[in-house]
Write a protein that binds this DNA or RNA. Structure first.
Length: 305
DNA sequence: CCTTAATCCTGGAAGC
DNA sequence: TGCTTCCAGGATTAAG
């Protein structure tokens, strides 16, 4: 669900609340969302005992820092042990004060949906404070590692540069070697990490580039424009606390505000803020795509403009 | 290579 | 109101 600005907002709000605290206990309601990177990182590590898996989830350890690459987070201990967190589509990390009604982390018994539902892992920080990993759709997951190098070797090193630090040269190199639609290339985390459907559409509108333009035809100058606009849009979205479309909230339970600044995402059929013509909607790389056919330069790919 | 569709799931919204 | 259908911020895989 969350893209770079939402994940960065979670990183900041979470770090402010857990830095330096010790994990008193770990609850694993759904062990199948937890993977071990030193066991290949693929399937659930069935051999490890529950006690061992809780240790891997930092039981007894102190929280050193929280880092991010693209849409993924990592909670690290001072000695380099850690947990990588990918929120997927519906995942969230939330700091809760236990003892309050509905905050016991157990699935609620009523028919009313509750934020305590789908809490797969909970870190008890003592003092009545817990961090919950919730993920109703379970497209996300947790990956434990003993050394930070494992995280980079098996996961983050395979991603492209982060959207906030990628250079025009790097982006141009990535785009020039693929014969795909520009939008499909920008969604590819191996090329640039952190963009999802919302921010790619906003980025392409801001740079007046057509989503179906052939990625390899993007010039160095256009790559420079893309990088500048990417930093600006992602930066502003972070300032606004991310985009809340449905249920995204940060670690403090706060919704984002950037959705009111969207120019194209979710506005199909509504007038373009630039020229007034209705924004068009198509599907590219399996994703709903909204763009202005007038303002964004014509496609050089697959027929229609 | 590149594209699409299916897949993993739940739940909110829209349609009838 | 109630039931059904569609759709969704992601990422991988298989099929064409």
């Amino acid at each position: 669900m969350p893209e770079l600005p939402e994940v960065e907002t979670v990183r900041r709000t979470l770090e402010a609340r857990v830095l330096g605290r010790r994990v008193a206990a770990v609850r694993m309601a759904r062990p199948d969302v937890v993977y071990e990177l030193d066991e290949g990182g693929r399937g659930p590590a069935r051999r490890a005992t529950t006690a061992k898996r809780k240790q891997a989830l930092l039981e007894g350890q102190r929280v050193g820092r929280i880092t991010r690459h693209g849409k993924q987070l990592a909670i690290l201990t001072p000695d380099g042990q850690g947990v990588c967190i990918h929120l997927g589509m519906s995942g969230s990390l939330c700091v809760v004060e236990t003892g309050k009604p509905g905050n016991d982390g157990k699935p609620n018994q009523t028919s009313q949906p509750s934020k305590a539902d789908h809490v797969h892992v909970a870190w008890d920080l003592g003092g009545g404070r817990e961090v919950w990993f919730r993920d109703p759709r379970r497209f996300g997951g947790l990956w434990t590692f003993n050394q930070e190098a494992q995280l980079h070797e098996t996961r983050w090193g395979r991603l492209g540069p982060d959207g906030l630090v990628i250079t025009p040269k790097q982006l141009h190199a990535g785009l020039s070697r693929t014969q795909r639609a520009l939008k499909a290339a920008l969604l590819d985390q191996h090329l640039v990490a952190g963009l999802g459907n919302i921010y790619v559409d906003e980025l392409l509108y801001a740079t007046k580039l057509h989503p179906r333009k052939l990625a390899s035809e993007i010039t160095k100058v256009e790559s420079g424009r893309l990088v500048r606009a990417m930093r600006r849009i992602l930066g502003r979205a972070i300032e606004a606390g991310g985009s809340t479309l449905r249920d995204y909230v940060d670690a403090a339970g706060q919704a984002g505000g950037f959705q009111t600044q969207h120019r194209v995402y979710g506005r199909g059929g509504e007038p373009c803020r630039g020229c007034g013509k209705p924004l068009g909607t198509t599907v590219i790389a399996g994703r709903t795509t909204t763009a202005c056919e007038g303002c964004q330069l014509g496609a050089t790919l697959t027929g229609e403009r």
